[in-house]
Design a protein around this nucleic acid. Structure first.
Lengths: 193, 193
DNA sequence: AATATCATGTAACATGTTACATGATTGG
DNA sequence: CCAATCATGTAACATGTTACATGATATT
């Protein structure tokens, strides 16, 4: 009980959609869950071995020699539901951009501008990718999963748009900092917008 | 070089605002940076010891016996600037809520609703806290840092509002999933299982 | 005097990444 | 045949949390 349950959830979840190899699992997680999840080989293979030992997945020796396709078992299905219903353990926050901006006085407004601009560009790229995903033609086999998948896409879009809006606001504020608008007027700093 | 540079940055940054003990450092990080950063004692004390060995901080044996107030040295100031200017290393994403929603079909719309509602409530609380911080009266000593601090507050507010908007949208979508709009239409009522 | 809080430090554990070793299969 | 890719697995390392041990100081 209770070991690496997050990786376990991701692996069982992915296998609940379709059986695949450990390698494909990693690619699926990177390409499909990539916006909010990640796993490395060093996590996936041990997790698969453990899940197999527990009878949650089984190897169906298909395909090439040495490669094994893993499929979820009924016991694995049950375990997945249990994990999904269980408590969400979140990672402690560690936002490198915010850390830098918080101590931004040491860097000065110009360097901060660059950081914010880079963040804005990144958010814009993420947003475009998510919109592309949303407009991909739905596949037959995954039709029932799709509404749920779109919830996560939507969350990503909202977050990306918020990041862009914030960046624009932050850039304006940093500009204000650099040239204090027509002579120093204390107690005035408002958000333009 | 290049060891735990993120913790180093947080510690040097906090000490650049004012000297304090390791204990106070942890409280400051939790209370002030808490919305986007975290450090534990197990990180802070070794980091302080290492920074002292390198001459980035020094102990000013003030206060009670056994307690040491740490202050940043000029060398530490320089190092801080170097760290702040360096590349941002971000943590791989791991969003437990999104993972659950992605496999939401296994849980069903009702359980997903609960998850989204909880997330909404959490975002609302975060938003209230951030707005309180924004309206706190500014202190004299930190006046120059304040504009930068407000950038991070603003980012948190944008993110929280985005989370709330998304949650409302998601709740509506989940409702649609449960009762498929205006009576059963053939080829449409499949999600009841 | 007892309790709560401040303070420092360490050890054990959990988690996760990266790099490497090894080999099969496929496409040119 | 050769390179690229698919595939599995492990070992070394990095990072980070939690729990514990220890004691000082402040509060009641």
């Amino acid at each position: 009980m209770a070991r690496a349950s997050q990786t376990e959830t991701a692996v069982l979840g992915a296998l609940s959609v379709m059986p695949m190899t450990g390698y494909a699992l990693r690619e699926a997680i990177r390409d499909v869950l990539g916006h909010f999840w990640s796993e490395s080989f060093g996590q996936i293979y041990p997790a698969l071995a453990e899940l197999e030992r527990q009878g949650r997945v089984r190897r169906t020796g298909s395909g090439r020699t040495g490669a094994s396709t893993f499929a979820i078992t009924p016991s694995g299905q049950a375990r997945l539901k249990e994990l999904l219903g269980g408590p969400i353990q979140q990672v402690p926050p560690r936002n490198g951009l915010m850390l830098r901006l918080f101590f931004g006085r040491q860097l000065g407004p110009q360097a901060c501008r660059s950081l914010v601009l880079a963040a804005r560009a990144e958010a814009q790229m993420r947003l475009a990718q998510l919109e592309a995903i949303r407009h991909e033609p739905p596949e037959e086999e995954t039709a029932e999963d799709r509404p749920y998948w779109l919830l996560t896409v939507s969350a990503g879009e909202h977050a990306a748009r918020a990041a862009i809006d914030w960046a624009d606001e932050a850039l304006a504020a940093l500009d204000q900092l650099e040239r204090p608008a027509g002579g120093p007027r204390p107690g005035q700093e408002r958000n333009t917008r």
